[in-house]
Simulated assay, not measured.
Amino acid sequence: MNASIVTGQQARQASRNNKTHSASTSGLAPGYLQANLIILPSRYANDFRNLCARNPVPCPLIAESANKGCDNAVVSHIDNLRGDEILGEWCDLRRDAPHYMVYKDSKLEKSHCDDVVAEWTDDHVAFLIGCSYSFETALATAGLPPRQLLLGRNVPMYRTKLRLCPSGVFQGGTYVVSMRPYKRRDVDKVRDITRRFGATHGEPLDWGWEAVERLGIKDIDRPEWGDAPLDGDGKKAFGEMRGQIKSRDEDGEFKEDEDEGDEEIPVFWGCGVTPQEAVMRAGLEGVVMAHAPGHMLVLDARDEDLAR
């Protein structure tokens, strides 16, 4: 995390100049809204807009290109925010995310490239989807910072079997979820804090070890995107701690705890990688662009603007 980047505009400028130097944008410009980005040929825009409307938890739509082919202004889908309040002047949707993915005819063509200037055309429409990084500042302020934020790692993200409500060409998609471990006793507090941020996935959609099975996650220690989760010491695989409630004694050795509230469990949120997965399943023709997972577009709106 770059501590000198304190505003959305500074974050975008650093991204444009390839100077973010981070595994992800988690913790970058604290308090500023972050967004997932997906850019589609215009003929798919209406179906995608409806996909977001039908699946607001994993695909909360914040804004979209002001018009077809526009790469420097957006119109808002948030009632209390104008487009220029979400993303101000001098923005460039082709260059202001740290890294991009490029798909051609639904096959990955470029991974983690610095910009999509060459791929952008007058027929493209960009969509900004809410990101759960946007409530991490509120969690940290409440004394519940996500572990990956403390370790400088990317949040783990998993493919699930939870099906999306389809829309037009977008059929057969499933949720992608992000995971942050918390003590069982803290889950209700975490839910209360994040519930206000409905435009950035809101409260967790599931939690606990039983949720791993309910969501169809194959291996908690092997996420499809992001970094593998670590235990409380930042060392062991998180899954090895399943069902164990441990603290350290006076000699620094692990001991069993009697309070089940101390058990760390996985907590899952909707994730903005979901629409990228939906695009891949849809077999779209032409060039589609998106942010690289974990490398978000940082906006000018504040997290609390959405919480209101």
Rank of each mutant, 00 (worst) to 15 (best):
N17G: 12
Q244L: 15
M101P: 08
P156Q: 06
R43N: 14
Y44V: 09
D114V: 14
D257M: 15
G8D: 03
I38E: 04
L40H: 01
H295T: 05
I217Y: 07
F135P: 04
A138Y: 02
G130A: 07
S15N: 08
G198D: 12
R248L: 13
R222H: 15
S76Q: 01
D123G: 08
G208A: 07
K189C: 12
D123Y: 05
S15Y: 08
K161E: 13
A45G: 00
L299G: 05
G202E: 05
S132M: 09
L162M: 15
W120I: 04
Q10A: 11
G286N: 04
F254M: 13
P156W: 07
H77N: 12
R308G: 12
D186F: 09
E89I: 14
R185D: 13
N72D: 15
E89K: 14
V212A: 05
G294E: 08
S106E: 07
I193H: 05
E258C: 11
Y44N: 10
F254P: 11
V287H: 05
G294V: 05
V155I: 14
M179C: 06
L162A: 14
A45E: 00
D262H: 13
V279N: 03
K235R: 15
R308P: 09
I5G: 08
L150S: 11
R191V: 09
M157I: 07
D233Y: 11
A45C: 02
E277Y: 15
R222G: 09
G283Y: 06
P56I: 05
G286M: 00
L37R: 06
L51A: 10
A307C: 05
W120N: 05
T141I: 11
A66M: 07
A142K: 06
P181H: 03
A292I: 04
G272Y: 10
D233K: 12
P41G: 04
P98Y: 01
Y182K: 06
Y32S: 04
T274M: 11
D249T: 05
G27D: 02
G173H: 08
S26N: 11
L144W: 09
E224K: 12
V117E: 10
D114L: 13
G173F: 08
G143E: 02
M241D: 12
D219T: 03
V190Y: 00
G31Q: 00
H21W: 10
V116I: 15
G152D: 04
R302S: 11
G261P: 04
N72W: 07
H124M: 02
Q244R: 15
R248N: 12
E277M: 14
K68Y: 09
D231F: 02
P204F: 06
I220F: 03
V116S: 06
L215G: 03
G270I: 03
E258A: 14
H124Y: 01
A237H: 10
E285A: 13
H77R: 10
A3N: 11
R185C: 14
D206V: 07
